[in-house]
Amino acid sequence: MAVIRLAALCFLCLLWPAGRAWALDLVVVVNPSCAVARLTRDDVINLYMGRLRKLPDGTAARPIDLSTSSGQEKQQFYQRLLSRDLSEVRAYWARLTFSGQASPPVQAATTEEVLSLVHRNPGAIGYVERSRSDARVRIVFELGDK
């Protein structure tokens, strides 16, 4: 009986979404020299899913992702933007990458690296916690936006 209970517990653990955490206040940022004032949720989805490769002002877009080891930001970004787990996002990009059709967003190791890359590249776009954004970047979308 104990074995059955243990097996049931293990199964429930598998079903439980990993990494439950408080919602972070995430914002999408671009280079301050970029002419884009705001992005819509659809803009952000299309840019991060590789469907559009230009920002609305015509600049070639360079989306930047956070690595999974950086914390909860990446998981919450895709969960709230697309309702998808990171494994589903990875599977999506594997399909495009290995059919030679598109390259996934560049992976930054830390939020500081995201801010630095966006600051140095006019078409770069990244996501960070609102409290971490500074004068090097400009907020164009908030994850709570519709």
Binding site: L96, F98, Q101
Partner: peptide
């Protein structure tokens, strides 16, 4: 890619006739 919307490719290319899979070799992707 002379433009962010346009891409031209030449060489040995994947045959892009697999709807919703693109390539049948990438097991992780489906």
């Amino acid at each position: 890619s002379p433009d962010a919307a346009l891409t031209l490719r030449g060489g040995r290319l994947g045959l892009d006739v697999y709807p919703l899979a693109d390539s049948t070799n990438i097991g992780y992707s489906y």
